[in-house]
Design a binder for these strands. Structure first.
Lengths: 95, 95
DNA sequence: ATAAATATGTTTATAATATAAACTATAATT
DNA sequence: AATTATAGTTTATATTATAAACATATTTAT
């Protein structure tokens, strides 16, 4: 019997889910790395990182690599929890 | 290593996914049954069933139960395929 | 018999979302 | 010094999800 719990709308988005999926496996990741791995545009990524950051699911720090701006992201404890909850909820739909 | 294949946007919707998840397990289901199981409003469900039907993922037949209109849905072969593909793609995100 | 409530949906309007296009600012290259 | 590349952000647009309003018929209560 399927079970349809609410799917966190913040995670039920292809790009944000991909970002979280990436971040959950690493200590931190740079903007450009995430953009390449997720094959997203910078604009879209920028917006979605903001949303995840505002929700407290990731932390974003801005610094410089040499003279260039560098945006580094990492998942938070809250983000890990949210991701796990999402995956569990999803399982109610797909099996 | 996560793998971010495209997630069929037609299935990457909480309600449509729930509908497909329900239908994949039964021969057919009535509108009201689906509405109750998915805890959706009739309006939203009507719209989403149309989309699934237009895509060929489900078939919808209209008849009467006694004197009342009766909308019955069942998943198609194409729908089963799409659902399976979606689940596989999703696994690339949630491992 | 008539009015009010219920059932089964559809259509239309609105709010939220995802995405891309345009832009800013700086740095490196020719 | 002009062009191209880098690293993003902001704004505009198209899509989507959702709810509200509507349509139509049927029961139930008065």
């Amino acid at each position: 019997m399927p079970n349809f719990q609410q799917l966190d709308p913040l995670l039920h988005s292809q790009l944000r889910l991909a970002v979280m999926s990436l971040l959950i496996g690493v200590d931190s990741a740079e903007f450009v790395f995430i953009r390449e791995k997720t094959k997203s545009t910078a604009g879209n990524l920028s917006v979605q990182l903001d949303k995840l950051s505002t929700a407290g699911y990731i932390s974003v720090s801005k610094s410089f690599k040499g003279k260039r701006p560098l945006t580094t992201c990492s998942i938070t404890k809250l983000g890990i929890k949210a991701f796990e909850d999402y995956v569990n909820a999803l399982k109610g739909y797909i099996e």
